[in-house]
Simulated scan of single mutants.
Amino acid sequence: MSVTRAKQRQAQERVNQAGSLAKSLAKPVGGWIATFQEAIGMNAPALAERLGISRNNIYAAIQNEQAGTISLNQMEKIAEAMGGRLVYAIIPREGPVEEIVMAQARTKARRIIQRTRAHMALEEQSEGLRSEAEMVEDLAADIIREGRRDFWQ
Rank of each mutant, 00 (worst) to 15 (best):
A89F: 12
G41W: 02
G31T: 04
N64V: 01
T69P: 00
R85L: 01
N64W: 08
I53A: 03
R106L: 07
K108D: 13
G52Q: 06
E94F: 01
V97P: 02
G95R: 05
A79F: 09
G83Y: 09
K27Y: 01
S20C: 08
A61Y: 11
A26C: 06
A46H: 11
I100L: 11
T35I: 00
I62H: 10
L25H: 14
A109R: 04
Q114A: 08
I100Q: 05
K108Y: 14
N56C: 00
W32M: 07
E94A: 05
A79V: 06
P28G: 00
I62M: 15
P28V: 01
G30T: 04
A67V: 03
K27M: 07
E38N: 09
I91Q: 09
G95V: 03
A61L: 11
I33P: 05
I58E: 06
A105P: 01
G84A: 15
R85M: 04
Q104F: 02
Q63F: 01
I70Y: 01
V101R: 12
A26R: 14
V29W: 11
T35F: 05
G31H: 05
A89W: 14
L51F: 11
A61G: 09
G95S: 07
E99S: 05
Q104W: 00
M42R: 08
N56G: 10
Q114D: 09
Y59H: 14
G31E: 02
R111D: 10
G30P: 00
G31Y: 11
G19C: 03
Q37M: 13
